[in-house]
């Protein structure tokens, strides 16, 4: 059975168009990769609401801060590895410290960016964005959720970061699926193990849950799209109900969503946890699915981790 797939960045582009149609103060900025991030759609449709900053990520972040101070609502985008990495100091000191209303999108995140290789695979961005005070961090699971997250960013005041990949990924949600920043979404109920996922790993987790069900293991699946602020109630409730947790993300094992869940549980309800993530190594060139398999970011890894963590209960 073929699954419908759309790149998450399409959701970002769509949301930008909707936002600008409703509010001409919304302005999109990019650093020479507008076609890739889909902010180029704004350039095509609302050229006055688009600025190409050139290959200058730090200036991109700083100028966005100024635009916010000048009364506009800037949405910046470039590849996540440069957006979060190269412009980190600007995001920290100029955007977050001032609590400026700048929205930041990290595109082509994760190892699934594929053949471009390690230099372009952002696997650390969630960690370094998450530590910043005032920052909201979202890793949506599909194009529609990316769209909703982007729209939601416009409704809150303060810096926000959304990260998404390059590849077309399975559609998990539709227009009617509820979305609220900071509220985890329960995708599937279960009682033996709670699989908490974000990004493209939500789909993999749902597939893993089906496999586990065939083996009479009842897995709950939670889409923890908002990594910060984390939905403490949902995470703790899932851990209490299932007694153990698997986290799954397309990110380094240290500092990402899995770490956020571990921090939350350590404080509120310590429970065994297994981490599906990149195991503290850099990526390499390869086809997206090939890499996801090679680095253990797939449903079979999740199934194995679920069994392992259940045994630790």
């Amino acid at each position: 059975m073929s699954v419908k797939k759309i790149p998450m960045r399409d959701g970002y582009g769509k949301a930008l168009l909707e936002l600008i149609a409703a509010n001409p103060k919304v302005i999109a900025l990019d650093a020479d990769v507008a076609k890739s991030t889909r902010s180029g759609w704004v350039k095509d449709k609302f050229p006055d609401n688009f600025i190409d900053m050139g290959i200058a990520e730090q200036d991109l972040a700083g100028t966005a801060a100024g635009l916010a101070l000048g009364g506009m609502l800037p949405f910046t985008s470039t590849y996540a590895v440069f957006m979060a990495g190269r412009a980190w100091d600007e995001i920290r000191t100029t955007i977050c410290y001032n609590n400026l209303n700048v929205k930041i999108a990290g595109a082509h995140a994760g190892i699934s960016v594929g053949p471009d290789g390690a230099t372009h695979q952002a696997l650390e961005d969630v960690a370094i964005m998450r530590v910043l005070p005032n920052m909201t961090v979202v890793c949506p699971c599909d194009a529609e959720e990316t769209r909703k997250a982007t729209l939601a960013f416009a409704k809150i005041d303060g810096p926000c970061y959304v990260r998404f990949g390059r590849e077309a990924v399975p559609v998990v949600t539709d227009e009617t699926t509820p979305f609220e920043l900071g509220k985890a979404r329960l995708c599937r109920e279960g009682s033996d193990v709670a699989i908490i996922a974000c990004g493209a790993m939500v789909y993999e987790s749902l597939e893993a849950a089906k496999v586990l069900a065939d083996e009479n293991i009842s897995a709950e699946v939670i889409d923890l799209h908002t990594v910060k602020p984390i939905d403490v109630d949902a995470v703790v409730a899932a851990a209490k109900k299932c007694g153990c947790v698997v986290t799954a993300e397309e990110h380094q094992i240290f500092g990402g969503m899995g770490s956020a869940v571990a921090e939350c549980l350590a404080k509120n309800f310590p429970a065994p946890q297994e981490f599906i993530a990149i195991q503290d190594t850099f990526g390499e060139s390869g086809q997206p699915q090939e890499l996801m398999d090679a680095y253990g970011l797939n449903q079979s890894s999740i199934v194995a981790a679920a069994k392992k963590v259940i045994a630790r209960k």
């Binding site: 801060a65 916010a68 101070l69 600007e90 000191t93």
Partner: peptide, 18 residues
């Protein structure tokens, strides 16, 4: 706010552009 050097001109440009 300021203190991390090198950032002010970008901010000024952004305000001016707004």
């Amino acid at each position: 706010s300021a203190g991390s050097l090198g950032q002010g001109l970008s901010v000024a440009n952004g305000i001016a552009l707004a």
